[in-house]
Every structure is written in C-alpha cells, then in structure tokens.
Design a protein around this nucleic acid. Structure first.
Length: 569
RNA sequence: CGGGACGUAGCGCAGCUUGGUAGCGCGCAUCGUUCGGGACGAUGAGGUCGCCGGUUCAAAUCCGGCCGUCCCGACCA
C-alpha cells in the first residue's frame, strides 16, 4: 500500500470527553468513527487488525476440531420464546416486525439458532461436534460506553459444542479453555481465566478471560498467593466465626431519632458496631418484594442474589414500595416479625445473636435480635461482595481486586437449550438423550480495544506484530528519484516476502511521517533518506522498544523479514 | 430508569447573558519558500447554527416541544 493513496485521515485533536484511552487513540489514529451510540465504523486500519484477530481465532478453533458456519442475524422471535429467553433478554434484544407483522429479533447470541441445526444430529456416532461462526451480534446495551469496549453492534466468535454426556462436555470445555489461552497469548493479551457467573446464559459453570485494565468494567478478586481468581459477581467469601453473647430473651425496641444509616447507628449512643447490625434491603424479584438481609458491614452483590434466587428481573424497591410493605422508610427497616414476605439472608448472619436492626418504625431500632429465633428466613445464600484484603477462600491469604476487561467467556450449558428445542440423539443403547452443550464467545472489537489499552504510550498505539494493521512502514524522507528508488526496493522486497508493509510516500515533512507512524503504531519503521543512502545505510526503528538500528541498505530487507517473522505467532 | 451537560464548517471550539443576519484553531485547495522529529507566508473553498413550532420588524441567541450524543448513578436502606 502507498500511504499517499490510503484513506488514513489522521486527526490531531483529542475528543473532548475523557474516555477509555483506547477510544481516544483509535479515533485519533483513524481506526474508528462513531455512527451512533454504541455503533462504530471500522476504517481500513481497524479492519486489517480485526481480520488478523479473526484469523488467529479461526486457526485455534479449527485446531480443536471446530467447523465454521454462517448463521443469520435475523431470527424468528418464536425460537427465543421456546427457551424462555425472549423475556429474559428483555430490552437488551433488538426487536422488529416484517411486512407480515411477523415478530423478528436481531441475534444477540446464537445458542437457539445453532441448536436448530443440531437437531439434525441424530446419533451418538456423529458426536462430538464443535461448531462456530464469526459474525455480528446486536445488543441494545442500556449504556454503551468506552468506545469499542461496550457497544451495541459487534463481531463475535461464538462456538458451540455438542456431546452425548457431561464427560464429553467437559472435554470440549477444556479444549476451548486451552484454545482461548493460546488465542489471547497470540493476540498479545495477558488474559487471566477466572470463575464467573453464568448469568442469562444459564448452565453449570463458566470461566471468563480477563485482561487487567483501568478501562475494564468488571472486578476480579485474585489471590497473589495461590492464584485463585474469580469475578466479584461470583467470588466466594469466607465466613468468619462469630462469638456473640446470647443477649436478652427477646428483642428490645429503642428510640434512635435521626438514625438512617449503618454508620449513624455505629456512632449512636447505645447503637451497635457495623458487624453486629443486620442491614435490611428490599428488592423486587420478578415483581415480588423480597427482604435481603446482610451483615451491616457487608455489601450485597446483586448478581449473586440473582444467581441464588433465579430471578430474571431484579431491582431495588422504590421508597413508596418500601413504606407500603413495611410501614417505615429505608433506614429503619428490619425483618423481625415479618411473615408474608420472602426473606433471603446472607450466610454470614447464620446463628448470629444479640444483633441490632431496624424496627420497621421510623426512628426506632431493635437490639438483642437472635437471627434464628426472631427472623423467619426463607433461604440462605452467599450474597455478599468480596472485599480487597479479606482472606482468600482457598488459602486464607489476603486477596486483591483489580479492574479488568472481559475478553472471552466460556460456558457449560448442559441440556438447557437442547431439551426445550428437542435436540436429541440416540445413544449406543438406542435411548434418546438430550445433547450436552457448551458455548464459547470472544468479542473481536473488544479484544482489539483491549490490545490498545495494554499496548500504548504517550506517542500512540504500539501494536504487537500479530495484530498490527501493517507490520512495517517504509518512511521516505525525500521524494527524489534516488531516495524513492531505494525505498521502493525495500518496500518491494518486504512485500514480496509476505510482509504487511506500507510505504509512506506522502509529500510531508519527516516529523509528520514519524509521528503518524508512531501514533498508528506500526511495529517497524524503515527510514530511507538521502543522508543515510550516501553512506549506503537506512534506519530500522522498533516502535515498542523505541530502538533505532542503522543497517546497510543491502541487508535491511532480510533483517526486517527476520524480525517480523520472529514476532508472528 | 433517575440526575447533569452538550448539539454552530471535515475535526476541536467561541459567539447566546444584553436578539441586528456567523467567527477562531486545525484540516482542505492553489502558489511560493522550506523540509531528518508535528514549517511559514499569501490567496481561497467550505455552515439547513440538531429538528419543529412560538415570541419579535428581526432568532444561533429568548420560550415550548421533540430528536441526538456524552457523563454520573443504577445498590448499601
């Protein structure tokens, strides 16, 4: 490619709004343009990089026996209704109607649709199968943000495994786990596998691949000692042994004027320490008001509550609903004596005695509450969010928590989709059995942005060679016949060796060319100028290291080829 | 869904308070000088001021509605 003919409209002004670094750089360096909220055009540079990510993914999924398909994005709503996910997905699913008023949805994932073809698997002899596609997904995110990191239309590699039993599923899952580790390593991402919640996907287990980054939207609990890692939506917590005194025979009500928060009650004369308080939250789970009880110093993890209860729609109750239900405002709520409302309690409250909680009367609390004696708990669960510094569930050492970008997610689905959709096969005994399925996803553009988040400096992007839009740029410093001829010989030599190379033949000053190449992040720059040519040399600059070597013109092609090939994965 | 801000040339912005027919920087075009780390001069092209309505002799500016975009929150009662 000749830069003078390429569409690379490099900008030099930053967008005003502070956002993810990758977003700013991808805009400034002419990789992407926004079309509307959460929808982006990939310009040629970005598309080149995305295709390389795609190529790596295809190689690795093919290597574990994957077969590539192309499924439609338009789905009949009916199929989603069959598995119940038309409702579960809610507003996140784009919906439209065709000319016959037929209800259509845009695919946000493809478990149902792949399963329509999987019904054609009829015998255990055809198993196992791994099927995948790389295609567009549509998700009407409530709040798209951070450029390519959270969007409404994006490309996903989604694969699905079909097996006769759990053992087969485990093998397919492990194969994907290994393939994903190779994919992220090749792309240049340091992705940590972590235990995760399965959320709306359902199933028995899942692992997310997390890349540490300040721009990430997920929080990962990680133990530096034993390497335990889990999304905080899922991370287990240790239960500290409590040594409460028995307290009185019955709760005692006492006046607490103006006390509204846990903190207030800690500081109130005759109040209680935070870990001796019961925090009462009101949530509406699928329309049903429910009390959630937490220890005063603990935070509810909503995803854990959702996973525990199986609720689809979950929200905090409004203040009027709370008043209506319990007769008091938030700040004075409690579960003592509450009979007609489900009560979900965190396991940290099990067996606790002599606790303090709200009395369901404004400006009034109860002390001497024994949980087992005084509260009619419906179910117990692990509901609280793990905090940095608390003991690791595996080894007891203090854990740390870091922000991360979810770059891949793999699920064991079991028969959740095959049963309602009738994807059955006959086993060796002629018995009909539902397929065991797994699903496995990687968001390509998010991975592209994650690479930029983790590979940049004050000059711009520094692409790893395997995903760089161009592996090398030949920068021509002066457009005279001799310099151009020398530069063209380098360019042709690299190109014919299969190097992705671009020649910067623009009529620009050298400084502009250097800065643009660095902003865009091309890994190797070969600088060809009259000054060097007089000595028979050119320069090779390494974008990531910042090093510059001076090399004989006659050797430079072979050396750059060797450099590039050593970095390809 | 709640709160806040913004929408003016390809991009980044000023002008609006106090209404009088639109400007700055970058970029773009032409010419000249320069040119191994974001050059300079001259000339020039480019705008339905988000959309609709209202007030007014007159609206980018004031009022109302709508649309769009961004940010914060979505919990700790």
């Amino acid at each position: 490619m000749r830069w003078s003919k390429a569409f690379i409209p490099t900008l030099r002004d930053d967008p005003t709004d502070a956002e993810a670094v990758s977003h700013k750089l991808l805009i400034r360096a002419a990789f992407i343009r926004q079309l509307m909220a959460g929808v982006y055009t990939l310009l040629p540079l970005a598309y080149r990089s995305r295709r390389k990510i795609q190529q790596i993914i295809e190689e690795e999924i093919d290597a574990i026996g994957g077969q590539e398909f192309l499924f439609p994005s338009l789905h009949p709503a009916e199929i989603w209704r069959k598995t119940g996910r038309l409702d579960i997905m809610g507003d996140e699913m784009f919906r439209l109607f065709d000319r016959k008023s037929g209800e259509i949805v845009l695919g946000m994932t493809h478990e149902e649709i792949f399963t329509t073809i999987a019904t054609e698997i009829t015998s255990y002899k055809q198993l196992p199968q791994i099927w995948y596609q790389i295609h567009t997904k549509f998700r009407d995110e409530p709040r798209p943000k951070s450029g390519l990191l959270r969007v409404r239309e994006f490309t996903m590699k989604d694969s699905y495994s079909f097996d006769i039993d759990q053992d087969g599923l485990d093998k397919a899952f492990d194969a994907h786990y290994a393939a994903y580790r190779r994919i992220f390593a090749r792309i240049g991402l340091d992705a940590v596998p972590v235990e995760a919640s399965s959320g709306a996907m359902g199933g028995s287990g899942s692992v997310e691949f997390m890349v540490r980054s300040a721009a990430g939207e997920d929080l990962v609990a990680h133990c530096p000692n034993c390497d335990y890692a889990a999304n905080v939506e899922r991370a287990d917590t240790q239960i500290a042994a409590a040594s409460d005194d028995a307290g009185p025979d019955a709760p005692e009500q006492f006046a607490t004027p103006g006390v509204r928060t846990i903190e207030d009650l800690v500081n109130f004369e005759g109040g209680a320490a935070a870990d001796r308080q019961i925090k009462t939250l009101v949530f509406v789970l699928d329309g049903e008001p429910t009390l959630i009880l937490m220890r005063g110093d603990h935070s509810l993890q909503e995803q854990k509550l959702q996973d525990h209860t199986g609720a689809i729609e979950i929200r905090a109750a409004h203040s009027e609903e709370i008043l209506d239900l319990l007769g008091a405002d938030a700040g004075s709520l409690g579960a003592v004596g509450v009979q007609d409302v489900p009560i979900v309690a965190d396991q940290a409250l099990r067996g606790r005695t002599n606790m303090t909680t709200g009395a369901n009367e404004n400006d009034s609390h109860l002390r001497g509450v024994s949980v087992d004696r005084d509260i009619d708990v419906s179910t117990w669960g692990s509901l609280r969010e793990v905090q940095a510094g608390e003991p690791c569930i595996e080894c007891g050492e203090p854990i740390d928590i870091f922000r991360a970008i979810e770059c891949g997610h793999i699920f064991k689905l079991g028969t959740k989709y095959s049963e309602p959709l009738g994807a059955m096969v006959l086993d060796e005994n002629g018995k009909s059995r539902a397929l065991y399925m797994g699903s496995y996803g990687i968001g390509l553009e998010r991975n592209l942005a994650a690479v930029v988040e983790t590979h940049h400096d004050d000059k711009g992007i520094a692409w790893p060679v395997p995903v760089a839009p161009y592996e090398a740029v030949v920068t021509v410093l002066k457009l005279d016949d001799d310099t151009l001829a020398a530069a063209d010989s380098v360019y042709d030599g690299l190109k014919s060796a299969g190097i992705d190379v671009i020649i910067d033949d623009r009529k620009e000053r050298p400084g502009v060319k250097f800065n643009d190449a660095e902003l865009i992040g091309i890994p190797y720059r070969i600088t060809v100028g009259p000054r060097g040519l007089a000595e028979g040399v050119v320069e090779v600059n390494d974008r990531a290291l910042g090093d510059t070597d001076t090399l004989p013109l006659s050797d430079v092609v072979a050396i750059v080829i060797a450099k590039v090939e050593s970095k390809r994965t």
